[in-house]
Design a protein around this nucleic acid. Sequence first.
DNA 1: CCCGTCGCCGTTATCGCTAACATAGCGCTT
DNA 2: AAGCGCTATGTTAGCGATAACGGCGACGGG
Lengths: 318, 318
Amino acid sequence: MTVSRVLRNRGDVSEATREKVLEAARTLGYVPNKIAGALASQRVNLVGVIIPSLSNLVFPEVLSGISAELEDTGLQPVVGVTNYRPDKEEAVLYEMLSWRPSGVIIAGLEHTEAARAMLENAGVPVVEIMDVDGEGVDSVVGISHRRAGRHMAEAIIAAGYRKIGFLGTKMPEDHRARKRFEGFSEGLAAAGLTVNDTEFYSGGSALLKGREMTQAILARSPELDFLYYSNDMIGAGGLLWCLENGYDVPERLGLAGFNGVDLLEGLPRRLATMDACRREIGRKAAEIIAGRPHSGMIGGEVIELEPVLQLGDTIRRR
Amino acid sequence: MTVSRVLRNRGDVSEATREKVLEAARTLGYVPNKIAGALASQRVNLVGVIIPSLSNLVFPEVLSGISAELEDTGLQPVVGVTNYRPDKEEAVLYEMLSWRPSGVIIAGLEHTEAARAMLENAGVPVVEIMDVDGEGVDSVVGISHRRAGRHMAEAIIAAGYRKIGFLGTKMPEDHRARKRFEGFSEGLAAAGLTVNDTEFYSGGSALLKGREMTQAILARSPELDFLYYSNDMIGAGGLLWCLENGYDVPERLGLAGFNGVDLLEGLPRRLATMDACRREIGRKAAEIIAGRPHSGMIGGEVIELEPVLQLGDTIRRR
DNA sequence: CCCGTCGCCGTTATCGCTAACATAGCGCTT
DNA sequence: AAGCGCTATGTTAGCGATAACGGCGACGGG
């Protein structure tokens, strides 16, 4: 017991014995067994974080926001990756909950029925992140992708573009990209316009795909005067291709992406984009998990962040 | 016990009771407590993975190799990030070992003394990855960065470049970048050459930094005819800058990066690089951890992978 | 001088599961 | 009818920590 007290800095132990314990622990190379500790105390200093992918650049940024916020709370994030597959998400969630974490942060609002039930019965704070367009289980932190798409459509129309193409991912499970597209279409519809042509991809180097898709869509529909990309990476590829092929950007052809990745700063021209508040989302989510025990177990907060439209150099200004 | 047997698929249980148990578990929403399970069985299906950063693109790729290999072994990776800080590495390692994982995969061969001691006494397989230039604790999977640098130097010299600049990160704790630089310098020295000028950066958008550094180094040393970048991202920034500013690449000025990230495929010209075998490193490391229990606890293997030089379009060919 | 308080440390009983062994019931042989 | 070998299920004793409480000097006030 005395050892336990020393190693956790809890309860009083005389300075003399404390020293002796630490000394002994050091020479023995003793590492306490958290498994036993967690079982006895019913407390686990882990927070489960479930995201669709690590190669998307967006999620590592969210993670870094989470880590930063958790840094000195004694909590530790544990990451699970679903590859955008609902069944994998369910499995990862089950696995995580079986370790009884102090909280769960999970991307998106769409889950299998079983996953939703698990989240509801987990008995720990749950934060669904990235997206606020829908019904959450507990707390929600994110942006409205639908409104983001709509907002972009309005900006494009205001800038005078009329023949609009959309380029995106082929993933049916990327609900946020889907919602952006829907919002975008609505925004166009409100002005009596529609998306004139679309192009989708999956897998491979996004930058390269951006080039290829741009070439393809412009070959097919040369009349287009604006291309809206569902992420910055393919947008960057498209931008490079357009510049190389002598398109007059943004006069003849406007371009925009989504996310606000800092990679864009190094491009020859600043691609129009919308910041998805990635780090901020991570921070807020972690804050809810870390703060919950103190703040009287309220739960169910919904925090909607406002993505900021950055016109950059690829949407003409009036 | 019967429930335990059903849920672990271990031992024989009649089909009838198995069904009843599963049914009950489902309606109760029962999730077994792995903490108690792990304590009792002294087995934990987690593998600790410790890496310096998630924003480097390289590490998510290693991770994806690890996940893929672990996919159906019943093992699960748990990621810890050190931000290139040795003290953080030590803390993360301690935290991980206190959960008694089935194995540890850790980037690099350089650790604090305490961390090394922990790895030695962990009593589980340890794989140090990315780098083979040094002494490992147990198994090692990686490439020789020193040789990679040297190899690049030789290729550059063979192509006839003579006035060579080096651009890299300012991080003293990035031992692999340092080793590449040392090997590179050795390679030049062997031909009676030296690095004519250097430029270092830290933080910020790598692509943008690549531009800025390239501009700076060429302004200061216009006679340079080759720029070696310590990673592909700054190399890509440099390439874009050179093309925009009318440099004749690769005739007047050659360029090369390091890593072989697939982003390069979307650039206007293919940057010369060297593949760091990232996914492969992840796979092999995971394979060692997963295979160890079977293969008779040998341990101590060193797997050196061969990075392949890709000349691309930015080193002139003879 | 007694008793309450405080500081420090030890004892006991869990936590929820699994390893290892025990038992019950059945069919079959001897 | 007893004994054997199965299979299917139950019992017991931990795993290594912590919560909760208990004990024991020392000290100080009445």
